[in-house]
Design a protein around this nucleic acid. Structure first.
Lengths: 112, 112
DNA sequence: CGGAATCCACAAGGATACTG
DNA sequence: CAGTATCCTTGTGGATTCCG
């Protein structure tokens, strides 16, 4: 797709790109899908996440670029590909749990 | 402003809203500014973050709504307001540190 | 000073069609 | 099957103006 927010303005910290990606539509859904089942084929993900082709493709590429997801494409016919979380990706999921606890801890005051 | 992504589709987890917010433009910059100095007045933030009025106002409101920032407005003339991180917000900053370490740990493979 | 309202340019993403 | 290309609608945020 096109996406690309901050080409190279000095970010507050290096992980800004990570948040920008994680904050994009469907990214969390995709990660969760891959957490529940890895590897998954492209159209398996399409079904399990209900994200349209173009966007799904874009997100997976970005996730791969950030190192959260590993993509493997087999040159057979019909084509076959699979996506799975990398160790880095799995590690991030642990941090997510911390964040969920954090949310819960303050859930009374949030409103959302 | 207008912003509002997922009104109420069942999210992968409750903290999705948090990521959507954190992933939006300027949010991280604003948080960092408030981390470095709290409280800050509205136009102090404007200067320190270089974010335009409308967007800054929008972000602050969302941050307040999520409970990360506290807003205090004094009814004097000229008006006076200040924004500061809540304990919840400060707590999040600790998680950020974890994430920065996580990024660093895998920095060789990311490309970004 | 601290915003809200308006307007506008461009980015994001959904639907659909197409290809190796 | 696994995407890419295209088109088109909607969202997002910058600039600017205005107001209490």
């Amino acid at each position: 797709m096109k996406t690309a927010r901050t080409p190279s303005s000095s970010p507050p910290c290096d992980f800004e790109a990570t948040f920008e990606l994680l904050g994009q539509k469907h990214v969390l859904v995709i990660l969760r899908a891959l957490l529940e089942k890895s590897p998954q084929r492209f159209n398996e993900l399409q079904t399990s996440t209900a994200v349209n082709t173009a966007t799904l493709s874009d997100r997976l590429k970005r996730l791969e670029h950030l190192g959260l997801v590993q993509h493997r494409a087999l040159a057979v016919t019909p084509r076959r590909a699979d996506y799975r979380l990398t160790p880095m990706g799995r590690d991030l999921m642990r941090i997510f749990r911390t964040m969920m606890e954090w949310r819960r801890k303050y859930s009374a005051a949030t409103g959302s």
